[in-house]
């Protein structure tokens, strides 16, 4: 198994497949077993391919004993019916075994997190927090080695939740609640993205998942649950511009729910649903040009605000740690 894994890793490297949104760099349990299946299927496919193409080349080549044997109608039965039946039966049973071994083995009470897809961002709610559910957006933090159960829903159209490094995708469908169980084996930051075409800015609906050691996760969740610092510079401009109609900053009068929650937005890796790195500069860029960066997004344009007001709001946002 060790050698197998090494071989796979080499192949993956060869293909240059160590990206952060890649099924090749699997660190979640489901993704790891699927990656193993992927390689088995790939190798099997290559073998079958060589076999069939070999037979074809032989059939086209010089007349001889081999060609005569290939022309026998019994070869059609053997190669076309018996051989695929055997191979497919084995594959089918193997894939059922994988399905069966799914999250049923997860056992123990999982940590519940709700993720809601919305045109074109993600609402994340940590449901099991002692002080009541804690809402966040466009970033998911989970403890390494623990079973996490994601509850996936949609607020408008169909989206699909995909973090290839951890698991295959699950659709988010209006009127339904789907579940995905994750168990991550190593800490790290990976990228996820919407994979069901959901109109307009579908291509720009991404997020980050950060897997952290359980104790760090607990500490982080406690910080996340806390309200924002009061009376930060720019808070007044933020509220006066009406941002609070759509965004929530806990601890302030801003309690809107149409847009992403912003209480600790500056502590997240990205803004705009995985589009820009979180930097002071990018907050300004976002406020100035978000319609260019993410066409069709539902936030109004803020040309009517003066440069100074936008500057103040950006300063406020970058202080929301």
């Amino acid at each position: 198994m060790k050698r197998g894994a090494c071989f796979l890793a080499c192949l993956a490297l060869l293909a240059g497949c160590a990206g952060e949104q890649s099924a090749f760099s699997a660190t979640g349990e489901e993704a790891i077993s699927t990656l193993r299946l992927t390689w088995i299927l790939t190798i099997g496919s290559v073998l079958v391919f060589l076999l069939v193409i070999g037979a074809l080349i032989a059939a086209l080549g010089r007349p001889g004993a081999l060609r005569q044997r290939l022309a026998d109608p019994r070869m059609v039965t053997l190669g076309g019916i018996v051989f695929p039946m055997v191979v497919l039966a084995i594959l089918l049973i193997y894939s059922f075994a994988l399905l069966r071994a799914g999250p049923a083995s997860a056992g123990a009470a999982p940590l519940n997190i709700a993720v809601e897809g919305k045109q074109w961002w993600w609402r994340v709610t940590y449901s099991d927090t002692p002080g009541g559910p804690v809402e966040s957006a466009n970033e998911l933090r989970i403890p390494v080695g623990e079973t996490v159960r994601l509850e996936l829903t949609s607020a408008d159209v169909i989206h699909s939740f995909w973090v290839p490094a951890y698991a295959g995708k699950v659709d988010m469908i209006p009127g339904r609640t789907n579940a995905l169980t994750l168990k991550v084996t190593a800490p790290g930051i990976v990228r996820g993205q919407c994979t069901e075409y959901c109109g307009g800015a579908h291509a720009l609906m991404a997020f980050r998942v950060i897997a952290m050691p359980p104790e760090e996760f607990a500490a982080w969740l406690e910080r996340e649950a806390a309200p924002a610092e009061q009376s930060l510079p720019g808070e007044a401009e933020f509220l006066r511009a009406g941002c609070g109609a759509c965004h929530t900053v806990r601890g302030t009068p801003a309690e809107g729910t149409a847009g992403p929650e912003l209480t600790h937005v500056a502590s997240r890796q990205t803004i705009g649903a995985g589009i820009l790195q979180t930097t002071p500069e990018n907050f300004r860029t976002w406020l100035d040009r978000h319609r260019e960066i993410k066409p069709g997004n539902l936030m109004p344009e803020y040309e009517f605000l003066s440069a100074a007001e936008r500057e103040a709001i950006a300063t406020y946002l970058e202080a929301l740690e």
């Binding site: 069939v52 037979a55 074809l56 032989a58 059939a59 086209l60 060609r67 005569q68 290939l70 022309a71 026998d72 109608p73 070869m75 059609v76 053997l78 190669g79 076309g80 019916i81 051989f83 695929p84 039946m85 497919l88 039966a89 594959l91 089918l92 894939s95």
Partner: peptide, 23 residues
């Protein structure tokens, strides 16, 4: 998934029949 397996067999038949005809 099972039906998807079953539908692969007819394609196998056609492939080997074409190969046999060439041969």
């Amino acid at each position: 998934s099972a039906a998807s397996m079953a539908v692969a067999i007819p394609s196998g038949i056609q492939f080997f029949s074409w190969i046999a005809t060439f041969a």
